[in-house]
């Protein structure tokens, strides 16, 4: 049986010009400001719409019909601002370019954002592993830069992220199962 080939983009949302900077002062390190969590108002549906609109703007009708066919957001975590987006293998570059051209989250949230594609993968398993690896890496880096609990904000965030990670692993396992059943049906 011939399988439909896909590419999975692991995407990070970064917030370089955070609005909270002026309020909270310099208490939170820049590393955490860049990797801030996304507001809950921004969900998978909006992300999908943003990507579709971006492709339509850059590549027109041709792009939307070629690349929009297999487009799906497999995973979205507002806490770490990470997503896994599935797209057809032949046209993943279009989706990637559209993501690069995003400068702002749309209306209900309305925050300037930079979207960084962290990894392109052929299987969702590797994409998930990358997500987990990144999350671990960031926590380690924050811990090392702050050197021993000077900052209560950092500690609490690190704790909550760590707690969340277990929950995430469970969710990812669910996605994995769902995806397998899907590819069998193709």
């Amino acid at each position: 049986m011939v399988r439909v080939k896909n590419r999975y983009l692991v995407v990070n949302f970064l917030y370089p010009a955070s609005s909270t900077a002026s309020k909270s002062g310099d208490a939170t390190p820049e590393l955490l400001q860049f990797h801030a969590p996304t507001p809950d108002a921004f969900h998978t549906g909006i992300l999908l719409r943003v990507v579709r609109e971006g492709v339509a703007e850059l590549f027109g009708d041709y792009g939307t019909s070629m690349a929009g066919a297999g487009l799906k957001v497999n995973y979205w975590s507002p806490a770490t601002s990470t997503a896994i987006i599935r797209c057809p293998r032949e046209h993943y570059e279009m989706i990637w370019a559209a993501l690069t051209f995003i400068t702002k989250l749309p209306k209900p949230v309305d925050i300037p954002v930079i979207v960084q594609v962290v990894r392109v993968s052929g299987t969702i398993r590797k994409a998930e592993e990358e997500v987990i690896r990144r999350a671990k890496q960031i926590i380690c880096r924050v811990k090392t830069t702050d050197a021993g609990g000077k900052n209560p904000i950092v500690d609490s965030i690190a704790k909550s992220v760590e707690k969340r990670r277990d929950a995430e692993n469970a969710v990812l396992a669910q996605i994995d199962e769902a995806d397998e059943s899907e590819s069998e049906s193709d």
Binding site: P16, A17, E93, M94, I114, Q116, V117
Partner: peptide
Amino acid sequence: KSVLGVRAPSDVINLASV
């Protein structure tokens, strides 16, 4: 001109290939 115009190296490479 502002931070928002900066993109990661891999994104730029993809843009170039497009």
